[in-house]
């Protein structure tokens, strides 16, 4: 290696430092740019109608995306209802009952891999499994694909959080003669509650902004789902169900300015919803650790 003068080494150092400072600022600038655009283009269309009315045909004033807001909430809630309990129980297996076994290692490995499977592939899978045999798109299919995306996240978070509980707690409970399942659910879960809740919130935040897995499962709809009775709601959830992200996709790709305007407002809503969930759960995690 040829020796270089102190001066050129200093200059190189300053140049690289400047570059990385600029890169870091650039990253922050991009976040600022995207958020600014969302507020600038979307805030104007956030009015009472937006939250309470159905979408109108292009050119007709005063439509909203109320059905899509309710639909996104319903699809996400249904997904969490399936994904969260299954994921938590799976996590208990990895952290407790199956600890150290080959099977647990294989499941942990496949959970990591499933997290990396593109969400659009999950959408196609649910299409082939549920939509094709049933002969129609449905809110249930949308929920199922979101649940599949949540499952490995919840499994791994639950396992990690349970693993952080001190072993002495378990030994103390075992020494008192408590059965294993009681130790797992009564003691471990209580100790890891906050962490698991944070993980679930993060998983919900992630799937609630997903579009690709809903494109061919819940599709979209310009109408309300029925809510007059439980069976009515259950039946209408078996029909194509409106949701915010696919609505954004359809409206943004359309050539109509008023639809694009509505897409911006919906984007603003979903982004700040997801960011708020993310920040709240991060904050919870930090407070717990700190």
């Amino acid at each position: 290696m040829k020796p270089r003068s102190m001066n050129s080494r200093r200059w190189l150092d300053v140049a690289i430092k400047t570059l990385s400072g600029v890169a870091a600022l650039g990253g922050c600038f991009m976040l600022g740019w995207i958020l600014f655009v969302l507020v600038a283009r979307g805030a104007g269309a956030l009015n009472w109608d937006f939250f309470t009315k159905l979408p109108t045909p292009p050119g007709v004033e005063g439509g909203g995306v109320a059905n899509a807001i309710v639909g996104t909430l319903a699809i996400t809630a249904m997904a969490a209802l399936v994904g969260v309990p299954l994921g938590m129980l799976g996590g208990v297996y990895l952290a407790e009952f199956g600890r150290g076994t080959r099977l647990a290692a294989a499941i942990r490995f496949s959970a990591n891999i499933l997290m990396g499977v593109p969400s659009i592939i999950i959408g196609i899978f649910v299409y082939a499994m549920l939509v094709q045999p049933m002969g129609r798109f449905s809110g249930y299919a949308g929920s199922l694909s979101l649940a599949i995306i949540m499952l490995p996240i919840v499994v791994r978070t639950t396992e990690d959080m349970l693993a952080m509980v001190p072993g002495s707690l378990r030994e103390a409970a075992m020494a008192l003669g408590a059965p294993r399942w009681k130790v797992s659910f009564g003691i471990y879960f209580r100790a890891a509650k906050a962490g698991i809740l944070t993980g679930i919130l993060l998983a919900v935040a992630r799937v609630s902004g997903e579009t690709a897995p809903l494109l061919f499962t819940s599709l979209n709809s310009p109408y309300w789902n029925r809510f007059d009775s439980v069976t009515g709601a259950a039946q209408s959830f078996a029909q194509p169900t409106a949701n915010l992200t696919v609505t954004i996709f359809n409206q943004a790709m359309s050539p109509y300015p008023d639809w694009q305007q509505s897409a911006w407002a919906a984007s603003l809503l979903i982004t700040f919803g997801v960011l708020a969930l993310t920040i709240v759960s991060r904050f919870m995690l930090q407070r717990r650790n700190g």
Binding site: I34, A205, I248, I270, V274, L275
Partner: peptide, 12 residues
């Protein structure tokens, strides 16, 4: 936070 922004927003 950039990672938390839904991908459809990047598209828009």
């Amino acid at each position: 936070l950039l990672a938390a922004i839904p991908s459809i927003i990047y598209g828009m």
